[in-house]
């Protein structure tokens, strides 16, 4: 019984926090300087991390892709096109979001958790400052915007790495590799939808976890780890939902 009610309470809390954040953003938008500082933090903290992880992902995807493709196809002329397609609609958004969840999500939870256990949130309240408006809203906006920027960056890095791998190991000419032949607008919309939903959910889930922190440094540690698992899992669920929904919608049209 308690498990079931706990299970239902989480989505309700998340939706309420999302609502409060959006209302605060619309009614009392944060000063743009604060948002820019937060965007700088988000981008700055994760840019090297994303370059390394997505670079290696690009290398290995092309490597495996070429080896597997050679089993069923005569040549590798379309490997680049398929690679870029899957990067735009699947791996680019999703793996970037997993990295942002790891880096930025846990950071937001740690920051808010520390504020809760050291009574800073109550100090805000007694000064008539809404913690959602003052702390969550600027971070939320920054993550939503930066998710798009970082995903584009990630796709570029992965494609560059994949191109080098294709050229050096499989002798696929960069001209042949770099083609948008398989990319339709529909794929781009799917990718953008994913990026937007990931950007909305990561800061909200992380903040909710931080707000629930209790009791000293142990509580901050717990809320941070909870944020990592919950945001990672949310990204995977959203990926499934969007991919499935998009596939079904496409079938209706064809």
């Amino acid at each position: 019984m308690t498990l079931a009610t706990g299970f239902m309470a989480l989505p309700r809390n998340l939706l309420r926090l999302l609502g409060e954040t959006v209302v605060a953003l619309v009614l009392r938008p944060p000063p743009w300087r604060t948002v820019v500082t937060q965007m700088y933090n988000v981008g700055f903290r994760s840019v090297v991390f994303i370059a390394v992880t997505l670079g290696f992902l690009g290398l290995i995807t092309v490597y495996q892709g070429c080896i597997q493709a050679l089993k069923v196809l005569p040549d590798l002329s379309m490997v680049g096109a398929a690679f870029i397609n899957v990067m735009i609609m699947e791996f680019g958004p999703t793996i970037t979001a997993l990295m942002v969840a790891t880096r930025v999500g846990s950071g937001i939870a740690a920051e808010l958790g520390t504020m809760v256990v050291t009574d800073q949130v109550e100090a805000l309240e007694v000064s008539n400052t809404d913690p959602v408006e003052y702390v969550v809203a600027p971070r939320f906006l920054a993550v939503v915007v930066m998710m798009f920027v970082l995903t584009i960056f990630a796709i570029l890095v992965a494609t560059l790495a994949g191109m080098v791998m294709a050229d050096l190991r499989f002798q696929v000419n960069p001209h042949t590799f770099l083609t948008l032949a398989y990319v339709e607008w529909g794929d781009v919309y799917i990718g953008l939808t994913k990026v937007f939903l990931y950007g909305v959910s990561i800061p909200i889930i992380a903040a909710e976890s931080g707000f629930r922190a209790s009791g000293g440094s142990e509580g901050v540690g717990q809320s941070t780890t909870r944020a990592v698992v919950n945001t990672l899992f949310a990204v995977i669920i959203l990926d499934f939902v969007v991919a499935g929904a998009a596939f079904i919608i496409r079938m209706q049209f064809e």
Binding site: F49, V52, T53, F56, L57, I60, L98, M99, T102, R103, S106, G107, A109, A110, E111, G113, T114, V117, T118, G216, S217, E218, G219, V220, G221, T224, T225, V228
Partner: peptide, 22 residues
């Protein structure tokens, strides 16, 4: 203190992710 633990968790998951991809 509390802040250090939060930072360590963050560094730990980031480094683990890098080592997984490499």
């Amino acid at each position: 203190g509390a802040e250090g633990v939060g930072r360590a968790v963050n560094d730990s998951v980031v480094t683990a992710a890098i080592s997984i991809f490499v």
